[in-house]
Design a protein around this nucleic acid. Structure first.
Lengths: 334, 334
DNA sequence: CTCCCGAGTGTTTACGTAAACATCGATGAG
DNA sequence: CTCATCGATGTTTACGTAAACACTCGGGAG
């Protein structure tokens, strides 16, 4: 900066004013400074700037994995929105979904140059670990029921599940089976709860839940059990990838979808439209989740009061070809 | 830090020595300082540290999107490996795959606190834009043919494609059709070139290439054309998601896979094992790509000489159920 | 006993920036 | 003509840290 000032024949403070876009610099001076900057290839040192300003203009994102569609799309949305607001994103991967792993990530966070954190993680693990967020660190949580302590942004899991299950009941199915996500997942839990609630409300029997780990392979395993049950005419699967596995299991056992069995998923990943058959599923608006996370976090960073509570992003059921009325034999007597 | 020093009754320099783990501090002193740190909730200011040391211990990653499996898995591998080395990852999303978008990302990069960059991007766009990497900024490129100017790490696209096409020929198919990725993609281009080369080498006819944009939907469109061509008995698709679309198109037109048409993909995304039928595909080792990127970049950061050239990560063909010998009528006369 | 050495700790300084304050010159009102 | 005012620019300072150097003190060699 001093070099630029010397070359431009001004003080370093004027260079600073130009580089931060402050007003009160006459156009001719500004031009000279910009030329000098270009000539010397000057670029501001962000460490010094951060030291001076006390802020990094960076947001940390703590998560387990980018391998699930939901996470990677949420992160992308967060990154895009943050960039729009002039913030960068620092990824803090948790090595393993264990207490130690989480603890390690939070320790690293403490040493990291971030103004706030977005935590994409089941709250169970947050609780199990006696992690200490650096005091005063703004935080927003995704995919968790920590609404009583932190601001939480999340997809309206329950409503999405309700829409899917009601849709299947309205088609005339006597009841709806469920392939759930891992028990530790709060999203999975809420989808399962809503499924159960709709069935109970309608006075329908509640079949036992099959469980998977979100992967297509685990969905396939669950599907094998369902395919063997002739009473099963409708399945609500907790995500699209497991639904893919369920479709495969049903297909391999000669149970046609949707003629004999209806299948509905959750997420509406792009591939779902190309499944065999194209999947009816609950569409999640990941971009909106990302947007609200960043908005809430920047609010805190700018000093707004922290308001715990959960912000829900609405979902919408996308009808495709994997759901239909049950075969006549299985139809419920009126 | 001054407060800690006062409480511990030592100089701030001793606090610094403790916090950076320098030797030459006697155990008793160390303990007192650590206690003081804990009591005051001290954590080092990374901006000041970065300013003093002239390094941020952060790597920037520039990419278009996390929506493709390849990108998100590569990023995850990079993040994990970087964390192991004590580096954080800053994501720099490119708003739009246009020159302006790329330029914007590189401009932001200039102001960002990073010690080096990993660019996950087609080199075409790098070239089209007159972007200026900050001089002296270490860089590693993925998915590009910039090997003459930058160090490049990439999957061995050509060999993977060769394996897939040869496998199909060995099964007895007269030739192999191809559904390629977008023309701007270097990966897509190399897969297509290798496909063509194998066919020409074997003296087989080279059918026209169908093109998609990596999405399942675009694969479906390409598949519709192929399904209408009775001479088509084998297809090599440039990624698994498009292969999913091709499978759907073939299925809807009553062409059975693999009895009538064989399909091979590229990527080996986890879902591919659950397609109908499970997909034969080329497995990419994204984790290894990420590892080598970080390794190469850290080498540069530590001052090793830059060695342009491409490092190829091997691939392996995974045999599943979507490929088989062609129907007798289509079999090639010996 | 003296001197030197080295381990342990303290003091000084600089990293690059921007806020706060100081200065300067031109303009317009009285 | 003088002086207050205001816009443009310069000077000083502090942000929190760690390297470089300085100092102290105990112990061993001569």
């Amino acid at each position: 900066m001093a070099d630029v000032a010397r070359l431009a024949g001004v003080s370093s403070q004027t260079v600073s004013r130009v580089s931060t876009g402050h007003p009160g610099v006459v156009e001719s001076t500004r031009r000279v400074v910009l030329d000098a900057m270009r000539e010397l290839g000057y670029r501001p040192n962000s460490a010094a700037r951060a030291l001076k300003l006390g802020e990094f203009r960076t947001i940390g994102v703590i998560l387990f994995t980018l391998a699930t569609t939901g996470n990677s799309r949420t992160v992308e949305a967060i990154a895009t929105q943050a960039a729009l607001e002039g913030y960068a994103i620092t990824l803090i991967p948790v090595a393993a979904p264990t207490q130690d792993g989480v603890l390690g990530a939070f320790t690293r966070l403490g040493e990291l140059a971030v103004d706030g954190v977005i935590v994409i993680m089941e709250v169970h693990l947050l609780d199990a670990t006696d992690l200490t967020l650096p005091p005063g660190m703004p935080v927003v949580v995704v995919d968790s029921d920590a609404g009583d302590r932190y601001p939480v942004v999340d997809t309206d899991q329950a409503d999405g599940a309700r829409q899917a299950v009601r849709h299947l009941l309205e088609l005339g199915h006597r009841t709806v089976h469920h392939v759930g996500g891992p028990a530790e997942s709060f999203s999975a839990e809420r989808r399962a709860q809503a499924w159960r609630a709709v069935l109970e409300e309608a006075g329908r029997p509640v079949p036992p839940v099959e469980r998977g780990d979100w992967s297509a392979t685990s969905g396939y395993r669950a599907g094998l059990t369902l395919a063997a049950d002739p009473a099963c005419t409708a399945v609500f699967v907790a995500n699209d990838q497991m639904a893919l596995g369920v479709l495969r299991a049903l297909h391999e056992h000669g149970r046609r979808v949707p003629e004999q069995v209806s299948v509905a998923g959750f997420d509406d990943i792009p591939d779902a439209a190309s499944y065999l058959p194209p999947l009816t599923t609950v569409h999640q608006d990941f971009a909106e989740v990302g947007r609200r996370c960043v908005h809430g976090l920047l609010g805190q960073i700018r000093g707004e009061r922290i308001t715990p509570g959960t912000e829900l992003v609405p979902t919408v059921l996308v009808h495709r070809s994997s759901t239909a009325a049950p075969p006549p034999a299985a139809r419920r007597a009126p």
